[in-house]
Structure formats: C-alpha cells, structure tokens
C-alpha cells in the first residue's frame, strides 16, 4: 500500500525543527510500524539523507524505549501496544500519517523523534525503591502476601516507563507513571516502612520537574501500553496527602 508520512525532523535540541513529508510505495501490511520506518530510513541513506532518529530496542513492547505520536495518539490508535507492536495492517492504502515526538517541557527533544526522559529516572532516584541491603532479606516465604494484593501490585509494576502517559496528557502530567510506582510498592507489605517517605519524595521530585497537574482527563490510562489504571494516581494522592499534612513522624525512642 501507499502511505504519506509527515514526520517531525529536528537536528538537535537547538534546532527549530519542521515536518518533512515522505511518500512510501509498497508498504507491506505485515510490517511493524518501526520496520516501515526502517525501510524509509534505508531509502533515505541511499539518497544521501540522514535517516529519521527514533528510539527503539527490544521491539516486543517491554523495554519502553520506543514511542511517538501516530496521528495524534501515543503509540498509535491500537490499545494496549507500544508503537513497535503496531502493525501496518491497521492502516489503509493512501493514508496520511503524522508522526510527532512526545511533546512535553519535561521531555526535551534530542533529535527527530528522540526525547530525553531522564526526568523519570530522577523521580525514581528520589524514592522508587525499597531499601534492602543485599543478603539481609528473610526467607522469601516469611511474609505471605494475598494473591489479590500481589496481582494488584503487579498491575502497576508492569509500567514500562515509556512516557506515553505524559505525552497524551493534555496537561503533560506524569501522574500515571509516578502513581504506578507508588501503588506497586505501597500495595506490598515489604513496601510499608518507606511508604510515606516514598510518596513524599517521589511527588516532590515529580513537582521539581516540568510536568503538569492532573485534571483527571484519563487520556494516560487510555494510551498506556500496559493499560495501567488511574487508581494508582488515587493511591498516590492519598499517600502523599497523608504524609505531607502529617509531617515526618516525630522521633521516638528514649534519649540516651
């Protein structure tokens, strides 16, 4: 089939950038979206042009590297997939496809469709963990966890950190990402000791980045390739409110 692509091209962060239009003949319906771009890139190289830079790695929807807007929707219109899992059979002959990078102040564009998502890492550095010294853990079966809780935690733990939630949020908010991590660890008994501190630190770190606020649009949930629920955001709101209003726990224990 034939396709017309409008692709955002930007040489570097300082460049203003613009859309470029490419006509593709002979796109196979069995190709993945990224393979379609691979083919285009091979042509561009042959013509002496620079290929389109886009991020990708595992190409099976789990590493979270890939992601851009396809006709205004993060990862394209197919629900529950990353753009590397999007196949060309969902397009029609003659379609025009607009491809844009994630746009958010917190995700500056590096080149073409590649953006800098290190803000996510900085939030995770602030508290996205359970502090446990290697070798100090009790037997894995020492703490039983109900299947309900562990499955619920897993629903949130599936987040691949792709950034589609931010890209699709009309507010450019990172609530789903942060909420998912806080909910994942907060649902497990191992996560309880640091639950309050984690919520406080991660939300504060999120606020330091240039993300927007939550207006409960729920676009994040709709585009999330792992279909993570905004109930994680509610859990984050609750944990954060409790700790932020109560302040840090007063030091206990006898003075020596």
């Amino acid at each position: 089939m034939k396709l017309t692509l409008h692709v955002w091209r930007q040489r570097n962060p300082a460049d203003a950038g613009a859309f470029a239009t490419y006509e593709l003949e002979d796109v196979s319906t069995h190709m993945s979206f990224l393979e379609m771009l691979d083919v285009l890139n091979q042509d561009l190289i042959a013509k002496g042009e620079e290929p389109i830079a886009f991020e990708h790695d595992c190409r099976e929807g789990i590493c979270g590297s890939c992601g851009f807007m396809v006709n205004g929707v993060a990862h394209g219109e197919q629900p529950g997939v990353t753009v590397c899992q999007l196949h060309m059979r969902h397009f029609k002959d003659g379609d025009e496809v607009t491809i844009e990078p994630w746009r958010a102040k917190a995700f500056p564009i590096i080149k073409d469709l590649v953006v800098d998502r290190s803000a996510f890492d900085r939030i995770m550095h602030a508290g996205g963990f359970i502090t446990v010294r290697t070798g100090s853990a009790p037997d894995a079966n020492a703490i039983p966890i109900t299947t309900e809780n562990v499955e619920h935690a897993m629903d949130f733990a599936e987040c691949i950190g792709c950034g589609a939630c931010v890209a699709s949020c009309p507010n450019g908010a990172a609530m789903l990402f942060v909420g998912a991590k806080i909910a994942h660890l907060g649902l497990l008994p191992q996560g309880q000791p640091e639950r309050a501190a984690r919520a406080l630190r991660m939300v504060e770190a999120m606020e330091r980045e240039a993300f927007g606020a939550c207006s409960n649009f729920r676009a994040c949930e709709a585009v999330c390739p792992k279909e993570i629920s905004i109930s994680g955001i509610a859990r984050m709101n609750k944990d954060f409110r409790r700790v932020a209003l109560a302040g840090p726990a007063p030091a206990r224990g006898k003075r020596r």
Partner: peptide, 10 residues
C-alpha cells in the same frame, strides 16, 4: 529472598 524483599510481585 532478596528479590521478594525488593518488592518483586512474584
């Protein structure tokens, strides 16, 4: 043991 303590939802 360590992975469970880290919060891995096995």
């Amino acid at each position: 043991d360590h992975c469970v303590a880290q919060g891995i939802p096995f």
